[in-house]
Design a protein around this nucleic acid. Sequence first.
DNA 1: CCCGATTAGTAAGGCCCCTAACTAGTGCAC
DNA 2: GTGCACTAGTTAGGGGCCTTACTAATCGGG
Lengths: 174, 174
Amino acid sequence: MSVSPPPITRFERLQRLAKRFPQLDSSGLETCITLLRLSNDLSDAYDASLARHGLSKGRFTVLVRLYSTSETEGGRGLIPAELAESSCVSRATMTGLLDTLEKDGLISREDHPEDRRMYTVHLTPKARQLLEGMLPEHYRRVAALMAPLSEQERDTLRELLAKVSTGLPAFREP
Amino acid sequence: MSVSPPPITRFERLQRLAKRFPQLDSSGLETCITLLRLSNDLSDAYDASLARHGLSKGRFTVLVRLYSTSETEGGRGLIPAELAESSCVSRATMTGLLDTLEKDGLISREDHPEDRRMYTVHLTPKARQLLEGMLPEHYRRVAALMAPLSEQERDTLRELLAKVSTGLPAFREP
DNA sequence: CCCGATTAGTAAGGCCCCTAACTAGTGCAC
DNA sequence: GTGCACTAGTTAGGGGCCTTACTAATCGGG
C-alpha cells in the first residue's frame, strides 16, 4: 500500500478549474457554493425542527400565516391563492397542503360568501393550540441561530442577500 | 361592498406576533426568512438552469466533482461514499444518482481493485463533452448572479454566512 | 481460524413540491 | 342573455432526496 498523496481541497480543485474555464469567477462561485450549502443545511435543520411537531415548512408557513392574520385582522380567513403566494408554493401544492392539514384537523375550509369558485381557510382550535405550544421554542431556536450576528451584521447580511437577489434575473437569462 | 382596509405587510404581522411571543427576535427572524427565501429562489433558478442539460443539482455536483478530480489527479476514480460526502447527499441517494447517470451513459462503475464491497466511478467521454459544453455558460451565469457584489462584499457575505453556520448547532439543540 | 462488529452499497417506500391538463364558476362584450 | 375569456382550485403524474432496513464484504480480537 503506497503512501497517500496530500489531500486536494475543494478550493484547489476550483482554482485549477478556473484555469481551464476563463468564465469562472472564483470568488463568485465560492460565494455561491457557500450560500447554497448553508441554505441546504439550514433548510434541513428547519425541517427537522418542524417535523417534531408533525409539520413541514409548507404546512408551518400556512399555519403561521393564518395565525398571524387572524390575530391582526380578526379571523377574516384567507383564500388558497393568497396562502399559495405568501408561502411561495404553487396553487396545486397548496391544495395538497390544505388537504392534509384538514385531514389532521388543523384547518377548516368554509364557503366563500361571494364567489363559489373559492373558499376561505380557517385555523381550528387544535391548530391554535399547536402553534401556541410550539412557537416559543421555535422562536428561541431562530434567535439562537442568529445570536452570533450583531444587529448591524444582520442588516448587512440582509442587504447583501438582497443584492444577490438582484442578480437572479441575470442568472436566469436565456 | 365595503372599502378594503389598507393591506397589512408581512413586517407588520411580524411585529404584532413579537408582542405575543417575547422569544421572537424580530431582526433575527426577518434575516432568517430573507435567507430561506433567497435560498429557495436561488435553488430553483439553479435547478432550472441545470435542467436544460438534463441535470439536477445532485447529478451536476457528481459530474463536476469527477471532472475536477480527473483533471487534477489523473482519473483516479472516486468511490460512491466520497461522492456522497462531497455532494452532501446520503449514500442511498448517491446510489440512485449513479444509477441514472450510468443509464444515461455519463458515468461508468468499475470494480475496486482492493475491496470488493466498493467500486470506482468514472466519467465517460460523453459526460466530459457535456460538461465542457455547458460549464462556460454555467460559470457565466454564476458570475452574472454575483456581479452586483464587489469583492469585498463577497468576502463579507461569506463571513456572515459562516457566522450563521456557527449558530446551526444551537438551532438544532434539544 | 472464525465470528462478531463494522463498513459499503442497495432496495423499498415516503414526503415535498412541481408542471400540465382539467373542471367549474364568474363576468364582460356584444 | 349568451358566449367566451379568465380565474380558482383540483387531479394526475413525476422528480429529487430522504430514512429505514437489508445484503455482502472486510477486518480484527479471541
